[in-house]
Design a protein around this nucleic acid. Structure first.
Lengths: 343, 343
DNA sequence: TTGAAAGCGCTAACAT
DNA sequence: ATGTTAGCGCTTTCAA
């Protein structure tokens, strides 16, 4: 262990109270005393014990993130990592800890209740909201400040969230493919039980409707976003009697699989067929594709993590300010091997 | 907040001590009393305050993971997510919290010191060890139990680690390509300042040496493992006067980029050129490749996370047991579109 | 401007 | 088998 406040105080011939006040920036401390205390703390490498502090103040100075892992499949959404990294930066700077709970998705409610009752965090961040998400109403009841990364269409009462404009991104991506003359456009989407995936489909359907095209169910796929899924979807779509000439992939990793299926079939991307990808993170975007390449980005997931953490901390500091929300617009980045792009 | 132990006790007409003992499974409690307490705790939805508990016991029941993020590039290694998920499962089950600290890589030492001094964790997990890693000797000095995911070749004193046998994997992968008749084999490796990457290169060189082949510096690449890097490396390697006929990629994501470069160049995988990939996690492995496909796996990163967490908890419970280590052997999974594989 | 005393919620001797 | 007391390291009235 390190030095305690008491030890530091007795070493200086002061009371723990004064030392505490000096360290925490209370105004009523003598300048000279404060300086002495600060110096002593530094040389003694003093760090306050977090647990004692939070027991005394009633604040834990920690934020909880609950990562639901499905019991059925082993994949963790890779954007989590970047998002968490962004949020973590903000917490560190603000002197907050980040507590991660990995919870099987059939025990989520319990996990939330526990974490609140144990008082180990001052706020919570909800990941991967579904269409109807009980977690949100649960947290509203529990009264702990929380933010949602994404939205839940089924929840009517207001809550705090940050989301990217998925619907708009996908409408614009579809419009782009329509402009290129495509009429049979496949949507290789994520799991449509997730709110974001439904919004993406809605955007896709919006654009088709405006163009007067009746959506074809065969052209719409939905599953967990993995490379093998993209590959299989691509193969199956190409086997259709009237195969699509363009593909809209819901994530870069899905596009990789799709690309494999298309090139395996001897198709040349950008000549025989167009692929457009959506991903939140530029860092996954391959450059120099010969495909028209679309990336809807909120200038990286990392930044979204930062912004969400900022908002949550503000909520923790002032819980009475009411729900706060932020909708991030996406950029369109269309590129090919010549480096063209448009926004 | 929830109910406190004191409230629970006075409600039952018992002393807090007895209630504490009943709840924590001490043997000297009357069966009937224990049952009464347990029931009351359940109906009152009682959960002990973590901070108070850890202040009293001196144990925080939390494990820290420090994620170094480089200030120069924005990428978080995607295997972190899976590893963390596996570790998190174990912690949850054992009643431990997981605290994640995201730290700029130039402030790591400070971060470690702080976290130890503040006493917020009982143990630490070190990610991404470099060849010479000061963190390890630092932690040895600080005396907090810790595990390393990977090893650091430069550190001589014993410490606890879990690693996969990178050298052996890459030796076997290279041998496989040599058996196929290739003599110019490119190594598209990760950053060789990382310990794992150096071990992989060593394995590659081992196999070449046995075959009597002089390694060609032009054929060895090293960088952060991303898709664009794989792509660029592929393009550049193909432009060589005497280009490689086989490629060894250090991760699946690099292989994706490589594949793009090769197909763009009009090469047919498995006919004109062979690609072999290494990745810790099968879930990234595309099925049905027409390429001989190699995956060295410790049956998923997730499992490695679980195992490492198990070991760390055992270390936390009994710090005197001395360093424990575990070397995971890899499986070779060679597949093509017909589903063939060998181990 | 400083200190003494009480208390945050829990556990752990030391009684009984 | 149960209760009393003290204390973990810090903050926070209240008093001086």
């Amino acid at each position: 262990m390190g030095v305690t406040l008491k030890e530091l105080a007795s070493g200086l011939g002061l009371s723990p109270t004064t030392v505490s006040r000096a360290l925490n920036g209370y105004p009523e401390v003598n300048q000279a005393t404060r300086q002495r205390v600060l110096d002593a703390a530094r040389t003694a490498n003093y760090h306050p014990n977090t647990r004692a502090k939070s027991l005394a103040t009633g604040q834990s100075r920690a934020i909880g993130h609950i990562i639901p892992i499905s019991t059925s499949h082993e994949i963790v959404n890779p954007v989590f990592a970047d998002f968490i990294a962004g949020a973590g930066e903000v917490y560190s700077r603000a002197g907050y800890d980040m507590v991660l709970s990995v919870v099987p998705d059939d025990e989520e409610e319990n996990a939330y209740r526990n974490i609140v009752a144990r008082g180990s965090v001052d706020g919570l961040l909800v990941h991967g909201p579904r269409l109807h998400d009980d977690r949100i109403t649960l947290l509203q009841d529990l009264g702990l400040p929380f933010m949602v990364h994404g939205r839940s269409s089924g929840v009517q009462t207001p809550y705090s969230w940050l989301d990217i404009n998925n619907r708009r991104s996908f409408r614009r991506a579809t419009e782009f493919l329509l402009e290129l003359g495509h009429t049979r456009i496949a949507l290789v989407n994520g799991l449509e039980s997730m709110d974001f995936a439904l919004r993406r489909r809605t955007g896709y359907l919006d654009a088709l409707a405006v163009a007067g095209i009746v959506p074809c169910p065969d052209l719409m796929r939905s599953a967990e976003m993995t490379e093998p899924y993209g590959h299989q979807a691509g193969r199956e779509l190409l086997r259709l009697p009237d195969p699509p000439t363009a593909f809209l992939a819901s994530s870069m990793i899905v596009a990789y699989g799709l690309r494999r299926a298309l090139t395996d079939a001897g198709l040349k991307l950008g000549r025989d067929v167009s692929v457009v990808t959506h991903d939140d993170d530029l860092s996954y975007m391959p450059n120099g594709l010969e495909v028209p390449q679309f990336t809807a980005t909120c200038s990286s997931v990392r930044a979204a993590g930062r912004k969400t953490a900022d908002m949550l901390l503000s909520l923790v500091r002032d819980p009475d300010q009411g729900p706060i929300t932020h909708l991030m617009e996406t950029r369109l980045v269309l590129g090919d091997s010549t480096g063209r792009h448009r926004t």
